[in-house]
Design a protein around this nucleic acid. Structure first.
Length: 878
RNA sequence: GGGCGCGUAGCUCAGCGGAAGAGCACCCGCCUUACAAGCGGGGGGUCGUUGGUUCGAACCCAACCGUGCCCACCA
């Protein structure tokens, strides 16, 4: 006990429970103050880069972000510890429509519209809003512990990124990859702007399919539609060229009801003769298919609605909303006896605005487009030829399905908040695309295009615009291509494919990232989607408050294998909180028992138990490395959880108690050093997952300043010790079996039982009798008052060839033990029978690989030995 | 209408060709001097169904049933 005072001194006091609230903020502020997250572009270290998917400036941290960020932080922190020059770059997206809507709503509550303010003042107002209440999410990220480089925070509308937008626009324009055209686009009649395909969500809605007779007598032809009101804009009827029913009508005209107009009947292969009547009404201005038919047949396009979806044709329907016009038109047609059939409800897919859920209206209008074909092909090839790896690989199919079938991308939006399209129109029809260094045309009559670019246009540049592109910066040279892109599989198309297109295009064919790691969606404990209406939404800040950031992160990462959805529940985060506390107490125990990290790890004088835990540690390091490289963070969590809880806490700490409380100072010193090593290694391994508690514990245990830049553990093959693992494995089986027996027999845990152990030599356990006795609470045999040894009343086979004779003071329940032995006997008989059947089958012995056959032989021998032993025990129980 | 995925213990999932696993929940016993946010022990599954391939199938193939997601300009 001579060094107890030293041990006590070396152990700063840790409270009895881990209190995250007292640790997290202090630690985070210190990390930032010490510049630990800052990346150095001039460093010689190999780079590791992640750009944070920029959250919307309007957003706040939800559980999905928490998952996304936890994954990125875990990857980043490990690489930092591995000695990479690590950059995790944060920033925000200006989120065009979303932000404009927020500010417009705010104005509306004051009775002001953006038009009252005018464009310039409105945009000013949005900037003001951004400065005051935007970007809350960035502050919330610190609560999670995100190790981002705050000195490099970017915004998609800041000056540098705006310049990147102008640069690439100009380049695409000059390459003929951006063009302006009159096309049918998705239009939101509420947001009053064009939308791209991905901003439209389809859902099956109830509608009504009505069949309308056009023309009369021999010329009559029946068409079917779910959008009766568009018939006002029909300019033809189309049939399939080979449709015998209508061949005689092709080239003739019919009268369009309600309008008095006569329209042609044309033959077009797009028409499916098997659907409905095989005749289609053609409304080029209000349907994309019809528009194409119209182009092929040189039909006029008749626009019958304004931008709000209100009918603009003269007549009784003027001024009606499209949804009012529909029944009105049907009623009018019915009055004329032209409705020949109705099918209601008729379920069909209808597009809705992603932002406001308004039914999208296909609208003919003049918009800007990106010609995606060559860009998308390159984006597909980069994955096809392996330059970019997608995790999980199954999702590549979806990726290809998307990039290989992409339509041209409508990039103009009729909004005010965003990057204004850098095109100027002259008084005589001139059109000039103005690059970032070009002079803006001046003079009478020149005006800039009033539209702004789709938000995704600037976010598609994120992996390189944030590093200084188009300038050739040190950052770009050092950190591009980025290493991993981490995001949910839900925006594989929205964002990932577009970054690929623009990254490859702008960076000379160099991909924006080497790996795309797609995680799943956070769900509740029953696998249900989280939704406000369902009331199962988890607020990560609430969890951080109550259980700590580490517990929140662990709960999320514990399910975060690539592509897998992540179910969470309050019970599980409690379990994670308990785990943090377990680590806390293990270290507290270690400190109070003199665990140390000073000096070399001893190679001499290690006990079997020490060698066992060190060996296990090497395996764990190897597994964790492999799992990290495969992005299987759920497995990382599982591996470390079990190593920490089972191997270290339940076994190693218990197995070393006799040494640490004993008198052998040399042995004690060795174990204290091993214990210190195991604890601090575990803390380093867990730091990427649980940064706060590990920082607090590691700095306390080691006395060093921070684990953030401590060296990542590497496995040492020299420390792998199969013999020690085998011995401890046998020991555990013996102890567990005795404990089972004691529990079955109702022997109080505290009660010591006299026992004789036999067969320890054969199991390699001769040297560990003391440990077995201490963990199983068995006393050595002793003499009774009459001078004879105690009488064994129960003989217990505990596997691995060991038997234990226990004196249970006559309390043994013979019937219960007999039942158990009988059960074991039946199982062993069955096992033996199975093995004999296999070994007696020539097909098996001929074809199965030798190790498998050997294994079966071993099983048979073991089963036969069990049977012999059980028979003897049953005999002894008489 | 196309495409993808999943059905393994009460719940959520891992295992993906050679003896059915984890966490939580459940049952029994314990305040054993790091931790009751803990310790020890235990019960519980013909691995969706039916066929096939194989010496051997939860794992490979086929069909079916159930379920989830993505894409989509059949009026």
């Amino acid at each position: 006990m001579t060094d107890t005072p030293r041990a006590a001194q070396a152990a700063p006091a840790l409270s009895a429970q881990y209190a995250p609230g007292e640790v997290e903020q202090r630690r985070y502020e210190q990390w930032v103050a010490d510049g630990l997250f800052k990346a150095d572009a001039s460093s010689d270290k190999p780079p590791f880069t992640i750009v944070l998917p920029p959250p919307n400036v309007t957003g706040s941290l939800h559980i999905g972000h928490a998952l996304d960020h936890s994954v990125q932080d875990a990857l980043t922190r490990r690489k930092r510890m591995q000695g990479y020059e690590t950059l995790w770059l944060p920033g925000m997206d200006h989120a065009g429509i979303a932000t404009q809507n927020v500010v417009e709503r705010q104005l509306a509550s004051d009775g002001v519209s953006r038009h009252d303010l005018g464009r310039e003042a409105f945009v000013e107002k949005v900037w003001q809003w951004k400065a005051e209440s935007g970007g809350k999410i960035l502050g919330q990220m610190t609560r999670l512990g995100d190790s981002v480089d705050w000195s490099r925070e970017r915004f998609t509308m800041d000056e540098g990124l705006s310049r990147a937008v102008l640069t690439i626009f100009k380049r695409l324009f000059d390459d003929g990859l951006i063009y302006r055209a009159e096309r049918i686009i998705n239009w939101c009649p509420r947001c009053l702007t064009a939308l791209s395909d991905i901003e439209v969500e389809h859902s099956d809605d109830d509608g009504e399919l009505v069949s309308i007779r056009y023309g009369d007598g021999d010329n009559a032809i029946v068409v079917a539609t779910t959008r009766a009101e568009t018939m006002l804009g029909d300019t033809a009827v189309a049939v399939h060229p080979d449709d015998e029913r209508y061949k005689h009508l092709v080239g003739t005209e019919v009268e369009l009801p309600l309008t008095g107009r006569r329209i042609p009947i044309v033959a077009d292969p797009h028409v499916d003769p098997a659907f409905g009547t095989g005749a289609v009404k053609v409304t080029p201005a209000h349907d994309p298919n019809d528009f194409e038919i119209g182009q092929r047949h040189d039909l006029p396009s008749l626009t019958i609605m304004d931008e709000r979806g209100v009918i603009t044709t003269h007549g009784p329907f003027l001024g009606l909303d499209r949804f009012e016009a529909r029944p009105a038109v049907v009623a009018a047609l019915r009055a004329e006896g032209r409705i020949v059939a109705e099918k209601r409800p008729y379920v069909h897919a209808v597009g809705h605005c992603q932002r406001c859920n308004t039914t999208v209206e296909p609208r003919l209008s003049l918009q800007w487009f990106v010609r995606t074909e060559p860009l998308a092909r390159a984006a597909g090839d980069a994955v096809r030829d392996g330059r970019v790896r997608v995790e999980p690989p199954e999702l590549t199919k979806r990726y290809f399905a998307w990039v290989d079938n992409m339509h041209d991308w409508c990039i103009s939006r009729q909004l005010w908040w965003g990057h204004r399209i850098p095109v100027w129109y002259g008084p005589n029809g001139e059109l000039v695309c103005v690059g970032p260094d070009d002079e803006v045309p001046t003079g009478e009559g020149w005006v800039q295009d009033s539209d702004v670019l789709d938000t995704w246009f600037s976010s598609a540049l994120w992996p390189f615009s944030t590093l200084g592109w188009p300038d050739e910066t040190a950052e770009l040279a050092k950190f591009y291509p980025t290493s991993v892109l981490v995001t949910g599989y839900d925006i594989l198309f929205f964002w990932v494919a577009r970054m690929m297109m623009f990254g490859l295009y702008a960076m000379g064919g160099r991909q924006p990232f080497d790996v795309v790691m797609l995680h799943g969606m956070v769900r509740d404990q029953y696998g249900k989607k989280m939704s406000k209406s369902f009331g199962n939404v988890v607020d990560p800040l609430d969890w951080i408050e109550r259980f700590g950031a580490d517990a929140t992160r662990f709960t999320l990462l514990r399910g975060a294998n690539p592509g897998a959805d992540v179910p969470v529940s309050e019970e599980w985060v409690q379990g994670a909180r308990n785990f943090a506390n377990k680590l806390w107490n293990a270290t507290r125990y270690g400190l109070s028992n003199g665990a140390t990290v000073e000096g070399e790890l001893p190679t001499e004088g290690l006990s079997t138990v020490d060698r066992w835990i060190l060996s296990r540690l090497q395996h764990v390091i190897g597994e964790v490395d492999q799992q990290f490289e495969a992005f299987e963070l759920a497995k990382v969590c599982d591996t470390l959880y079990h190593f920490a809880w089972d191997d270290v806490c339940d076994w190693y700490l218990e197995l070393t108690k006799p040494v640490l409380t004993g008198d052998d100072e040399a042995a004690k010193a060795v174990t204290r050093r091993v214990l210190g090593h195991v604890l601090e290694s575990l803390q380093r391994l867990l730091h990427p997952i649980m940064p706060f508690v590990t920082e607090e514990l590691w700095t306390t245990l080691t006395g060093r300043p921070t684990v953030v830049r401590a060296e990542w553990p590497s496995a040492d093959k020299e420390l792998v010790d199969d013999a020690a693992e085998g011995e401890v494995d046998n020991l555990q089986r013996v102890v567990t079996e005795v404990r089972r027996f004691r529990a079955d027999q109702g022997v109080k845990p505290a009660q010591r039982v006299v026992a004789r152990l036999e067969g320890l030599d054969a199991a390699g356990l001769a040297a560990h009798e003391g440990l077995i006795r201490s963990l199983a609470r068995l006393d050595a045999p002793r003499q009774g008052p009459d001078g004879t040894e105690f009488a064994a009343t129960a003989k217990l086979a505990v596997g691995v060839g060991v038997t234990v004779e226990l004196d249970t003071r006559g309390a043994i329940d013979v019937a219960a033990e007999r039942a158990r032995l009988t059960k074991d006997k039946v199982a062993a008989e069955k096992e033996a029978e199975q093995c004999r059947a296999k070994l007696g089958n020539p097909a098996f012995t001929d074809k199965a690989p030798e190790p498998v056959v050997a294994k079966i032989r071993q099983r048979l021998e073991a089963a036969e030995a069990d049977l012999t032993r059980i028979a003897a025990q049953l005999e002894a129980l008489q």
